[in-house]
Simulated assay, not measured.
Amino acid sequence: MLTKLANLNEKMTVSHPMIDQWLASRRQLLVAYYQLIGLTPQKNSSEQCDEVVLDTFCQRLVDYLSSGHFKHYQQIEMLLASQAQQNLISVLYPQLEDSTHTLLALYDTYLEPAISNGEIPKLRNVISEVGMQLDALFDLEDKMLLSTELVGSHTSTAQASTSQLAAETAKPVERLSSGMLDS
């Protein structure tokens, strides 16, 4: 996921303070995620999770999801110049909302309680699921960012690919693994 972020940064040719801040917070979230997954595999099922690392990750996750949902998505929408770009955001936005709600459900159901009780066997599966959901969310956000005229592609290429991106993103976001929230 950090490699995808680096690739996205390379494609961006125009700096915008809001996008720079947003991508920096994504990087911080990913670093916290990698610190968390680096710690949990070394624990056995009877050990407590490192609460500080888990708490840092959870805080960054909630902050990132909140800022995207309540701030950045709307600001990106204001940067979209063409009708094709605005049409794409209308396709992406419901998927971004679904992905955000899925991640928040994982947080509310598993991660937040794990700060208190550190149930590692359950937590490992949830952390893996959170990683997959974050990757899906980042892919959607990247499509949104790449649809703006803030990237290095030529305008005609960007407009031609907007229809293709809309078709690709019309596929539903993967739902939680079967039974993940039922356990």
Rank of each mutant, 00 (worst) to 15 (best):
L176P: 06
L104E: 12
S82N: 07
T100L: 09
S153V: 06
L150R: 06
K4F: 01
G131R: 10
G118I: 03
L104M: 14
L5S: 00
Y110W: 15
V62C: 02
Q75V: 05
N125T: 13
L36S: 05
E97M: 09
Q133T: 07
L39M: 05
A160V: 02
S90H: 12
Q159R: 11
S178W: 08
N125R: 13
A167Q: 13
M18T: 12
L96V: 12
S25H: 12
V130Y: 03
N117K: 09
V173I: 14
N87E: 14
R124G: 04
L140C: 01
L61D: 02
T13N: 15
Q95C: 05
A32C: 08
L103P: 02
H16D: 12
E141K: 07
L39G: 12
Q42D: 06
M1T: 03
L2V: 06
A167L: 13
L150W: 05
S66C: 05
L165V: 01
L2N: 04
I37R: 14
E112L: 12
Q133L: 03
F57Q: 06
A166M: 14
M12P: 00
N7Y: 02
V130H: 05
E174W: 06
S66P: 00
S161C: 03
L88F: 07
T3R: 10
M144D: 00
A24V: 02
A166V: 01
Y33V: 03
E119Q: 13
V130M: 04
M12L: 15
P172V: 07
K143V: 09
G152Y: 08
L79D: 00
L30F: 09
S156T: 10
V14M: 11
F138A: 10
E97K: 12
V52C: 03
V151C: 06
A24N: 12
E112Q: 15
H101M: 14
P113H: 08
L30Y: 11
